[in-house]
Computed example of a mutant assay.
Amino acid sequence: MNLSKFVVYLAAIVFILYGLAFTINPNGMSMLVTGTELTNTSDLVDFRATYGGMTIAIGVIILYLHAINQIRPSLIAVTVVLLSMAGARTIGFIVDGAPNYLMYAYLVLELGGGLLALLALSKTQNID
């Protein structure tokens, strides 16, 4: 498997599994990630929709682009999503202060994945 396929499949699988975890168990995932309990129905519904549904959609879109031979756009999508998450997370660190250890781990994974996607992108040709 080449680097482009590896990056696309890994990112898509992680997004889909992470989204499914939030869809199936939003309160448990909230406790794991932020240490806070979701206390009302709207919390649960919004976590399922945003962290669950939207995250699953990102993974599916990445897989779809790859499936229709849009390798570069799929790598661009991975890059933009991961580096945008890392950028917004960094702003949170600066504005909001020191978070839990998982936020630092996520930042490392987002930066690493985004840079790996950029590397794969640099190795792909401009034709799809």
Results as ranks from 00 to 15, higher is better:
Glu110Arg: 06
Ile91Ser: 03
Asp128Gln: 13
Val80Arg: 01
Val80Asp: 00
Thr124Ala: 08
Leu119Asp: 02
Ala88Val: 08
Leu3Ile: 15
Gly52Ala: 02
Arg89Leu: 13
Gly53Tyr: 09
Val81Arg: 00
Ala67Met: 07
Ile76Trp: 12
Gln125Arg: 14
Pro99Trp: 07
Gly114Glu: 06
Pro73Gln: 06
Val14Glu: 13
Tyr9Arg: 12
Ser4Gln: 07
Leu115Trp: 02
Ile56Arg: 08
Asp43Ala: 05
Phe47Leu: 01
Pro73Val: 02
Thr79Ser: 13
Gly92Trp: 09
Asn40Gly: 09
Gly112Ala: 15
Ala77His: 03
Ile61Ala: 07
Leu75Phe: 11
Ala120Leu: 06
Ile16Lys: 13
Asn2Met: 05
Gly19Ala: 09
Val80Gln: 00
Val108Thr: 14
Gly52Leu: 03
Tyr101Ile: 05
Gly19Glu: 07
Met103Asp: 06
Leu75Ala: 05
Phe47Ser: 05
Thr90Ile: 12
Met85Gln: 13
Asn100Thr: 10
Leu20His: 03
Leu38Ala: 11
Ser4Asn: 11
Gly28Lys: 03
Leu82Ile: 01
Val45Asn: 09
Val45Lys: 11
Thr79Asn: 03
His66Arg: 03
Gly114Asp: 05
Leu32Cys: 04
Pro73Ile: 05
Phe22Val: 00
Tyr51Lys: 02
Phe93His: 11
Asp43His: 15
Ala117Leu: 09
Ile94Trp: 12
Leu107Tyr: 04
Ser4Val: 04
Ala21Ile: 01
Lys123Thr: 10
Tyr104Val: 12
Gly87Met: 00
Thr41Cys: 03
Thr34Leu: 11
Asp46Arg: 04
Ala98Asn: 14
Val7Asp: 01
Ile68Tyr: 07
Asn27Trp: 06
Pro26Asp: 07
Met31Tyr: 11
Asn25Trp: 08
Val108Arg: 08
Ile91Leu: 15
Val60Trp: 03
Ala98Tyr: 14
Ile76Thr: 10
Leu121His: 02
Gly35Pro: 09
Tyr64Ile: 14
Phe15Lys: 01
Ile94Phe: 12
Gly92Pro: 06
Met31Thr: 12
Thr34Trp: 13
Val108Tyr: 07
Asp46Pro: 00
Thr36Asn: 14
Gly53Arg: 05
Ile68Cys: 04
Pro99Gln: 04
Leu121Glu: 05
Ala117Asp: 04
Pro26Asn: 07
Arg89Ala: 12
Ala11Asn: 13
Met1Ile: 14
Leu44Asp: 04
Leu83Glu: 02
Gly97Phe: 00
Leu109Glu: 04
Leu32Lys: 08
Val33Asp: 10
Thr55Glu: 08
Asn100Pro: 14
Gly97Tyr: 00
Ile24Pro: 01
Leu20Tyr: 06
Gly28Trp: 02
Thr124Ser: 11
Ala77Ser: 13
Pro73Asn: 05
Ala12His: 07
Gly113Asn: 01
Met54Asn: 10
Lys123Ala: 03
Ile91His: 07
Glu37His: 13
Thr39Lys: 13
Val78Trp: 01
Thr36Tyr: 12
Met29Val: 07
Thr41Ser: 15
Tyr51His: 15
Leu116Asp: 12
Met54Trp: 12
Thr41His: 13
Thr50Pro: 00
Val45Glu: 08
Gly28Phe: 04
Val60Cys: 06
Phe6Asp: 00
Leu82Cys: 06
Val8Tyr: 08
Arg72Glu: 03
